[in-house]
Design a protein around this nucleic acid. Structure first.
Lengths: 208, 208
DNA sequence: CAAAATCAGATTGGATCCAATTATGGAATT
DNA sequence: AATTCCATAATTGGATCCAATCTGATTTTG
């Protein structure tokens, strides 16, 4: 019933570069030369180019024909779009998932929150943030909706890392996550929705 | 001021395959062998693989590692997700664009509608449909929002072609488009929004 | 001297070849 | 006869090589 995780070099390299970008090793606007990345990551240009294309879809890099790839430069409009979309789509996913959430899901979400409190590295912290949200949305079983939300989350996480709000808001964000989790546990749809929207609004403001 | 259209073989081939899928030449579930496509489209496998990856992002093909690519199979849940997302995101884009719409935009939209009335081929018709919506949303200048909407529209157009609703609803859809355009011309935000939502709801129902 | 043209180097996109994985068919075994 | 096992073919992913495009400096020209 599981579809193969596709352990191909292209996706592994994409993940490596994603980590490098989220950790600030590669900064916005920085050119990403294919040969340099190949040597650094020990792969040929074929999987690397697929990785760059994949990262471009996520909005982490911008690629112009024959001109090469650069780490994406986020402007305010882009950030506004990302968070406004999240505020529309994520409550929908949460509403669909809420009636299906089980003790196991809550436990998973709580474990993720605990792990996040101990994590410092931006890339891993944003991964844990997404893991938390996914734990709550995933049981909706709405794969297409989830795919879009995940894509937007990746770019949004990038914006938070750039603005360093992911570090500055660590504690507040953790509190908001825990309150949201409790509302979900209680099955309170209205509270959960409004807590989620507030959480996203604050995250948005912190990035500006 | 224009960014290069990236006239690379990979994107040209992607467009060709997209057309073949939307026109029903390739049917859902059909395996897409790389060598066969290469011979048919007269390109090597390198740009073809990039094209397949790009189509996978659009949700038109599914690709599993080492197992090859297939034309995507749409289920009801996927269709529901697509239209529900459209109903959330497109009114937002329209609201942002409305105050900025000019005579030129309206003229463009009307030209597209006229062209659509004379068009039969599904792939071109769905392109014109998107052109119309883009004419109304584009002046919002919200590139990130537009990118997400376009992506969802591509998959949604595929669903409409499969269900043949793009043909069956041609006349109704044209009427709804013209009414929406008039509301925009009048600068009536509330009407425009509700007409758009209705339009999308009917398109959704017609696909089921 | 400024601006346009041009030429060399650097860099990306595409074609071809090789390696890794999966699918297929037949033989061996029970 | 059905099933497992294994070998071979088919297919995809990756590495390397070639072609096309861009970049930068130098030269040429007004």
């Amino acid at each position: 019933m599981e579809l193969d995780p596709k352990n191909t070099q292209a996706v592994l390299v994409a993940q490596e570069i994603r980590t490098l970008i989220l950790n600030g090793v590669f900064t916005p606007g920085q050119p990403l030369r294919q040969d340099a990345l190949c040597e650094r990551l020990n792969v040929s240009r074929t999987p690397l180019r697929h990785a760059l294309q994949s990262l471009a879809e996520d909005g982490l890099v911008e690629v112009a024909g024959f001109k090469g790839a650069r780490v994406a430069i986020l402007d305010q409009g882009m950030v506004d779009d990302l968070f406004q979309m999240r505020m529309l789509l994520e409550p929908l996913a949460l509403q669909s998932a809420l009636p299906r959430l089980t003790k196991v899901d809550f436990a998973k979400a709580e474990m993720v929150l605990d792990a996040a409190e101990a994590e410092q590295e931006p890339s891993r912290l944003s991964q844990l943030n997404w893991d938390f949200h996914r734990a709550l949305y995933g049981p909706s079983n709405r794969e297409t909706l989830m795919r879009t939300i995940q894509q937007i989350n990746t770019a949004s996480a990038f914006a938070e890392v750039i603005a360093n709000s992911i570090g500055a808001r660590r504690s507040d964000s953790a509190d908001e996550h825990r309150r949201l989790l409790e509302a979900c546990r209680a099955g309170d749809q209205a509270s959960a929705s409004s807590l989620l929207t507030d959480h996203l609004r604050r995250a948005h403001v912190a990035v500006q």
